[in-house]
C-alpha cells in the first residue's frame, strides 16, 4: 500500500473456468479477516465460456471505487492472459504468473495466430517485477492440481499484508472444507517457491 489512505489493488486475470472469481474472493475474505475495508468487482458474464476474465480486489483503510486500471499486483493464472494483463499494472507493480499454464485460444488452435510466450522479456522491458512459477506442478505436489490458484496466492503473499490466520480465514470462506488443508499446503508451496526464487536472484 503506497500510503495508509490509498487502497491496494490486486487484479486477477485468466481464462473463464480457471477459478479467477474464487481466487479474488479468497483475497477479499483475507482482507476482511485482516480488519481492512474491501471492495471487489468482476465482469463474469462470459466466465464459463472460456473468454478472458478480469476480477479486481481493492483493500485498505477505506476503499471507494470498486475498480482501478492501475494495479499494484496482477495475478495471472495463464501465460497469454499475463501478457494481456501487463497494461493493468501501475508503475513499480508486480505480476505473479502461472507461466507454465498455456491455454490456446481458438485463433491459435486454428493456427491463425502464434501463442506469444515473451512475458518475461516484456515485463523486464517495462520494469515490472515478474514472479513466474509452474503453479500446476506445485499444485500437484500439494496433492490436487486444482489448487494452482492457491499456489499463486502463496507466491503473491509476501506482497500482501495478511498473516497466516487471515489466509486461512479467506480460504475457509471460499473453498470446500475438505480441500482446505490441501489449499493451505499449496499456498505454502507457492510462498516457499517464491522465497527460494528471490534468494537465488
Amino acid at each position: 500500500m503506497s500510503t495508509a489512505e490509498q487502497a491496494f489493488t490486486v487484479s486477477l486475470v485468466g481464462v473463464g473456468g480457471q477459478g479467477i472469481l474464487r481466487a479474488a474472493a479468497i483475497i477479499a475474505h483475507a482482507a476482511v479477516a485482516a480488519g481492512l475495508d474491501v471492495k471487489s468487482s468482476e465482469i463474469k458474464g462470459m466466465s464459463q465460456r472460456g473468454g478472458s476474465v478480469l476480477s479486481t480486489v481493492r483493500f485498505g483503510q477505506r476503499v471507494l471505487s470498486p475498480r482501478s486500471d492501475h494495479a499494484d499486483l496482477v495475478i495471472a493464472t495463464e501465460l497469454l492472459e499475463g501478457l494481456r494483463g501487463l497494461p493493468l499494472l501501475a508503475a513499480g507493480g508486480t505480476m505473479v504468473c502461472a507461466a507454465s499454464t498455456r491455454i490456446q485460444p481458438g485463433a491459435v488452435l486454428r493456427r491463425e495466430q502464434e501463442y506469444p510466450t515473451e512475458l518475461a522479456e516484456q515485463a523486464a522491458a517495462r520494469g515490472v517485477r515478474l514472479i513466474a512459477l509452474d503453479a500446476e506442478a506445485l499444485a500437484r505436489q500439494a496433492g490436487n492440481p486444482r489448487t494452482a490458484n492457491s499456489v499463486l496466492l502463496g507466491a503473491a503473499s509476501a506482497l500482501l499484508p495478511f498473516c497466516d490466520d487471515d489466509w486461512q480465514a479467506g480460504l475457509a470462506k471460499s473453498v470446500p472444507p475438505k480441500t482446505l488443508e490441501t489449499n493451505l499446503l499449496a499456498l505454502r508451496l507457492g510462498r516457499e517457491a517464491t522465497t527460494s526464487q528471490e534468494a537465488r536472484q
Binding site: 481464462v15 472460456g50 473468454g51 478472458s52 497469454l80 494481456r84 485460444p105 485463433a107 506469444p116
Partner: peptide, 11 residues
C-alpha cells in the same frame, strides 16, 4: 511495443 495478442472470445 506489446505484441498484438490473440484475442480470447468466449466460445
Amino acid at each position: 511495443d506489446l505484441p498484438i495478442l490473440p484475442v480470447r472470445p468466449p466460445v
